[in-house]
Computed example of a mutant assay.
Amino acid sequence: MQTRYVSEPFVNLWRDPGQVRDVDKPSLEHPAHIESWLQMTLSDRLDLVDRMESQSLYGEPVLVLEEQGPWSKVCLPGQITPKDKRGYPGWVPSAQLTFDSDYHQRWNRGPLAWITASHASVKLRSGEEKTVSFMTKLPVIEEGKQEILVRTPEGGTGRLPSDQAIIGHKPELAPPEDRIRIAKQFLGLPYLWAGMSAYGFDCSGFMFRIFEAGGIQIPRDAGIQARYGKRIDRQHLAPGDLVFFAYEQGQGAIHHVGMYIGDGFFIHSPRTGHPIRIDPLTTEPYHREFCWGTRYQGDETD
């Protein structure tokens, strides 16, 4: 088992390389053509459900379990799941992974620069600019007033605007109102199945990154997110609580999650074709499918 690091703005985690379609090829290249891939039709986006599992951001570590041709079977150690105790499992293109020993040491030692803007531009020493997502994190070499000098996973250096990142081993624990403010900056962003980046989130990926920005690690998927923290009934919801929805009028399997923002409303990434938005809990099907809320106040997954 070897550690590698993501060298694209994000890498898709696929269930089976044999399920990858021609329309997905732009996302498999190095460098990846993300914007081209995101031009998928609605039908193509809907068809991702049985193909994609998750995503990992630029510079994040992956554990390589085996390699088959151009593909690597990996686990994503930052994403808690019962599928594998080492992290979320799946397949990624080997060409989109890299390793540099200095980066590896700095990643494990910290501190890191955590991107707080929806997107930020990393100015590489070569003159190239790489656009990275919210919650991308890179090892800090030097902090300046205007820019942060960071190590990139390829072994080079880059510069980030200081006002688009925070520095630390992890974000400080933030109050619920900060999580709500952060979440609202993504209103209108298109839904993307398995999305974990500011290029498109699914429901649980959205909550994962918002809570990560608030200094709290939660599991990757909605059904597992609901198992941790303190369970809260509808009458006692407070702003910042997760709210969960289940089939069979709230009695079956959990299939959706959002965050309560107060006054009977919640923010969420609904489904393919419907961007991030705010809805009242009285809206159907959410009213009849609500099962419970969960309050995270720290790293209850530890």
Rank of each mutant, 00 (worst) to 15 (best):
Q2R: 10
V11I: 15
P17Y: 00
Q19S: 14
P26S: 10
L28I: 08
E29W: 03
S36F: 02
Q39K: 14
M40N: 12
V49D: 11
V49N: 05
V49S: 09
R51A: 09
M52W: 04
Q55W: 00
V64P: 15
L65P: 13
W71P: 15
G78S: 15
I80V: 09
W91F: 13
W91Q: 11
S94Y: 02
A95W: 02
L97R: 03
D100T: 04
R106N: 08
W107I: 09
N108Q: 12
L112R: 05
A113R: 00
T116Y: 04
A120P: 06
G127D: 06
S133E: 09
F134T: 02
V140G: 12
I141F: 07
I141N: 00
E142W: 11
E143R: 12
G144F: 06
R151L: 15
R151P: 07
P153Q: 02
G155E: 06
P161F: 13
P161T: 14
A165H: 01
I167F: 11
G168S: 04
G168R: 01
K170A: 15
P175M: 01
P176Q: 05
R179W: 13
R179N: 14
I182D: 05
I182W: 07
A183K: 01
K184D: 03
Q185H: 09
Q185R: 14
L187Q: 10
P190I: 02
Y191W: 09
S197H: 02
S197C: 10
Y199N: 10
G200N: 00
F201C: 13
F201P: 12
C203T: 11
M207V: 09
M207W: 00
G214Y: 01
I216W: 05
I218D: 01
P219F: 03
Q235P: 09
L237W: 07
P239N: 00
G240M: 06
G240F: 04
D241E: 07
Y247F: 15
V257G: 01
M259K: 01
D263Q: 14
G264H: 08
F265E: 09
I267H: 00
H268P: 08
H268D: 06
S269E: 04
P270F: 05
R271L: 08
I276A: 06
I278Y: 08
L281Y: 03
T283W: 06
E284N: 10
Y286H: 04
C291Q: 04
C291G: 03
W292H: 11
T294F: 00
R295F: 10
